[in-house]
């Protein structure tokens, strides 16, 4: 009990301390350094169009990473999000191309279908891994295969196309040069921030990541909290599917291969600890930006594909090593 209150008050007070500010700014500074580097060494990096591009390009990863943050905070992992996204997209693609309905109806139906598909997959991940206290690594690896197989089965391995025009419009709509789909992701970030920092549920997720037993002994329904974290992650995969469809105007059953790894990278680069209990969704936002800016800038510089892949890997490792020292520094 004492330990648990400790955990809660500690993380809450941290939030306003100077140290926490430096802690958070650390990763922000890395992003700033990248932005300055690319602005100096490439001609087009700071163009309005290029910034719009970057925002569009990081949207799907950001949405997946927001859900992933919840799961990693409780000390879990979700390897299935890329496949679940594809499954949700295919189910929604089937719904949106149903004949004999109005445009608004099929779009709503498709959104509902994608979100339901994501919800169900996330719920299953949560219930199975929490009920039997099994490593989420292996349960979600199973779900990765189930969802991918289901996506291929439902679509018969064919790309689904010909979506209503209004749906395309949403995918490419802008407000003051900011893609609407990115704003959707940003709203999700803010919502997640509120849940994680301003609700008892959110604070207890940190608690579970730090000391699950303490939270359990304090009489909280840990099982349901963990299920909720996985379900949120599944939901974001469903939302990512809608964005994917709106942006590309197709549903492909082979979409999202490896997306789970990019989402995990964004969360970890953002300073969330893989062992749970420490981190923030604002960090995840910055982490997604770092990956996106890197992918964009390295192409603008004209680096070869293979060098680009190597540098991305190096940056992930540097970020985590730096984070190790930041955490040590902050703990002093």
């Amino acid at each position: 009990m004492a330990r648990q209150t400790d955990v809660l008050s500690e993380s809450r007070s941290n939030e306003f301390s100077l140290r926490a500010l430096i802690n958070k700014a650390g990763i922000g500074l890395a992003l700033l350094a990248l932005i300055i580097f690319f602005s100096v060494f490439t001609e087009h990096f700071l163009n309005a169009n290029n910034i719009t591009n970057i925002l569009t390009q990081i949207t799907i990863n950001l949405i997946l990473a927001v859900g992933m943050t919840f799961v990693i905070l409780i000390g879990g992992i979700d390897l299935s999000v890329g496949s679940v996204m594809a499954f949700a997209a295919v189910v929604a693609g089937k719904a949106i191309t149903l004949p004999g309905f109005g445009t608004t109806e099929v779009i709503l139906l498709a959104c509902l279908a994608a979100i339901t598909a994501g919800f169900v997959c996330g719920l299953l991940n949560g219930v199975i891994s929490s009920y039997w206290a099994l490593p989420s690594f292996i349960i979600t690896l199973g779900m990765l295969n189930i969802a991918r197989g289901a996506a291929l089965q439902v679509s018969e391995a064919q790309t689904i196309y010909s979506f209503p025009f209004a749906f395309e419009e949403f995918g490419s709509a802008m407000i003051y040069g900011i893609p609407v789909v990115f704003l959707v992701a940003l709203v999700l970030v803010l919502l997640a921030w509120f849940i994680l920092n301003r609700t008892v549920f959110g604070r207890l997720l940190y608690g579970i990541g730090n000391n699950e037993e303490a939270v359990r002994l304090a009489g909280h329904p840990v099982f349901w909290y963990k299920v909720a974290a996985f379900t949120i992650c599944g939901l974001t995969a469903g939302i990512a599917a809608i964005v994917y469809m709106a942006r590309l105007n197709i549903s492909s059953p082979i979409a999202g291969i490896g997306f789970e790894l990019n989402a995990i990278a964004a969360v970890i680069i953002g300073g969330t600890s893989l062992s749970g209990g420490r981190g923030s969704v604002i960090g995840t936002l910055i982490g997604a930006f770092i990956i996106g800016v890197l992918a964009n800038g390295l192409i603008l510089i004209g680096l070869s594909d293979f060098m680009r892949q190597m540098i991305t890997g190096v940056v992930i490792i540097i970020a985590v090593v730096l984070d190790h020292y930041r955490a040590k520094f902050a703990a002093k």
């Binding site: 390009q57 994917y244 590309l248």
Partner: peptide, 24 residues
Amino acid sequence: DSRTAHWETEEANTVFSNILTAHP
């Protein structure tokens, strides 16, 4: 420029947008 997008739609969309920025 000549780059891979691993046969995939989303990656081609991203990679090509960036190429287009570099070479309008």
